[in-house]
């Protein structure tokens, strides 16, 4: 990716208001896991997960491969059903009757999963399925593409985009419907290091602007402490650590504060 566009993305990162972690306690819950378990046959993947997340919080879920972190996310997005316990969402969504539990949860996959036969803007419009259609959908999709810095690629095929650009289109698709909850399953894992940092900054900027609740599954501890308000470590199907990250934004990568938190998390993972 050319240096110019890196600079362009950098300049998007506005100075956000700092939110102390305690402030979230006053906020309504976005969702809550209560004693949630998930088995696949005899194999216990998640066991007795209790997790309450207030509206607008950015939670990172970390764990080694196979620890159940992706399953947690799939339960949240309604891709799987828990075998034990319950999963509840913000109360007024249920009272409204219009929206189902998962309807305002969007999922961003590890792969971009763009439709190769649809133009970039049509792919973003997929995120408006059942929300908007026609010229309205196109306009909203174009606006969202502008947000991720791809307005000029709207009518191209996904196959001509780079990996980072594809993932930005996928992000636009996930966010164009203004979800309440965004579930991210290692969406930056396959990107090169520089593109990844660029994407993290883009994600943070849009999260600050749209104020959705974000749940990011990652194996990158540095990414987790750089982006999240709170880091949850999953180990052998249980929550091993639930840590607030009370660091003001914008955060400086490599700062001593972040490094210390990173150390705590790594100790818990490998200790």
């Amino acid at each position: 990716m050319p240096a110019a566009s890196l600079a362009a993305v950098r300049s998007f990162v506005a100075t956000p208001p700092a939110l102390p972690a305690e402030q979230f306690i006053e906020r309504p819950r976005a969702f809550a896991f209560k004693g949630v378990g998930k088995n696949f046959g005899d194999k216990v993947v998640l066991d007795g997960i209790d997790l309450e997340v207030p509206v607008g919080q950015f939670v990172a879920v970390i764990g080694k491969s196979g620890c159940g972190k992706s399953t947690l996310l799939r339960l949240l997005a309604g891709l799987d059903r828990p075998t034990a316990g319950s999963l509840t969402f913000r109360a007024e969504e249920k009272r409204g009757g219009e929206e189902q539990d998962h309807s305002r949860t969007r999922f961003m996959f590890q792969e971009p999963r763009l439709l190769p036969w649809a133009s970039v803007v049509k792919n973003v419009e997929v995120g408006l399925t059942g929300i908007a259609s026609g010229t309205d959908a196109r306009q909203r999709a174009l606006d969202m593409l502008a947000e991720v810095g791809l307005a000029d690629r709207a009518d191209e095929w996904p196959s001509v985009l780079s990996g980072g650009q594809k993932q930005r289109v996928a992000l636009a698709r996930a966010l164009v419907g203004h979800p309440r909850i965004l579930a991210l399953d290692e969406p930056l894992g396959a990107l090169d290091a520089l593109t990844r940092i660029e994407m993290q900054q883009l994600l943070e900027r849009i999260w600050l602007a749209q104020k959705f609740t974000a749940v990011l599954v990652t194996h990158d501890v540095a990414e987790a402490v750089a982006l999240a308000d709170r880091v949850v470590v999953i180990s052998a199907g249980k929550i091993a650590l639930d840590l607030d990250v009370p660091v003001q934004r914008p955060r400086r990568r490599g700062s001593a504060e972040l490094a210390r938190l990173e150390g705590t998390i790594l100790d818990r993972l490998f200790g």
Binding site: L79, R106, F107, F109, R113, W117, V126, G127, G130
Partner: peptide, 27 residues
Amino acid sequence: PQLVEMGRVYGMDRRALFFRVILPGAL
């Protein structure tokens, strides 16, 4: 199948899934 799953997650009904994902993919 990943695209089909994506279509489901984004709320496509069976008809939309067929015309926007399955048929173009089979073409």
